[in-house]
Design a binder for these strands. Structure first.
Length: 266
DNA sequence: AATGTAGTCAACCGCAGGCAT
DNA sequence: CATGCCTGCGGTTGACTACAT
């Protein structure tokens, strides 16, 4: 990326635009190391860097952050993206929170290039189909459980955002419906986002719950070895097949998550 | 080898919300 | 309460790269 043409090296109001140089990167990293993240507008005051606060933040968040994961989106991550997009729509930052080391920009770009042009990969189609099938199954299971006498579990959640839950459960429809529902819920108040997310994930699919678990566990290694599917279902390539087969074990995760195994981690 | 096309990615823009004054 | 600033988010752009013709 370095040593690019000077095409973008504009300067407006004394602030540079366009591609960053390694020198600029160093300055920004040094600034963050000393002052921490935030206060982006002060970067140009404290350093030689002639960049807007916006530009600094973007560069840091999307490129310089030490915990960023490099490399291609894995099939696991792809599946999570699909599921979360079905749930949240284009709320990339929300989706990104469940994918440690990935940025909203990265996910957004990935989505646009892979799915926006009406040409979803087989992996994606399968993931989607599986996702909604699982949801239907989980819903019927939950409804059965709800008809039986309820224990203590989940009562507080119900009280806190019962409306959201109801909406989610009632909706067994298309991805669009899911996204709309999620958006409606989210618009009720962003500060409830984590709770809603928790709720939705808890309900939705063990895969996403697992993603969040990974997230919560920090970025130790980042081995996305959570639930998913079998190689027969997902493995459109040999690589995929091996990954899905060895790392993702959906059935176990279903048991863990929905029988309380993973619940304790929330 | 040259050209065209699609895919990828970094960066910018405009807007909205939060917060301090 | 009103205003202005800062931050974060989603959408968009444009250059680079890889692949196909």
């Amino acid at each position: 990326m370095e040593g690019q043409l000077d095409w973008g090296r504009q300067e407006v109001d004394g602030l540079r635009k366009g591609p960053w140089t390694s020198q600029e990167d160093k300055l920004l990293v040094e600034h963050v190391r000393q002052h921490g993240e935030g206060r982006w507008n002060s970067v140009s005051k404290h350093t030689e860097l002639k960049r807007s606060g916006k530009s600094c933040r973007l560069r840091w968040v999307n490129y310089l952050r030490p915990d960023l994961k490099r490399g291609k989106i894995t099939p696991q991550e792809e599946s999570i993206i699909v599921q979360l997009h079905a749930l949240w729509g284009n709320r990339w930052s929300t989706v990104a929170r469940s994918l440690p080391g990935r940025t909203d920009n990265e996910i957004k770009n990935y989505w646009r290039t892979h799915f926006k042009k009406g040409k979803p990969s087989k992996n994606i189609e399968r993931a989607r189909a599986r996702f909604f099938k699982q949801r239907r199954e989980m819903q019927s299971q939950q409804q059965q459980q709800q008809q039986q006498p309820l224990g203590q579990v989940g009562k507080d959640d119900e009280n806190q955002h019962g409306g959201a839950r109801t909406g989610m459960i009632d909706d067994v429809g298309s991805p669009v419906d899911d996204a709309c529902t999620a958006r409606t819920v989210a618009e009720a108040g962003r500060h409830h986002e984590d709770l809603i997310m928790h709720d939705a994930m808890d309900f939705m699919c063990p895969m996403s719950s697992c993603a969040l678990l990974l997230h919560g566990a920090g970025q130790g290694g980042g081995a996305g070895s959570c639930c998913g599917s079998t190689s027969e279902e997902y493995g459109s390539s040999e690589e995929d097949g091996a990954t899905w087969g060895t790392l993702w074990n959906l059935e176990d995760m279903v048991d863990d998550v929905f029988n309380g195994g993973a619940r304790t981690l929330w």
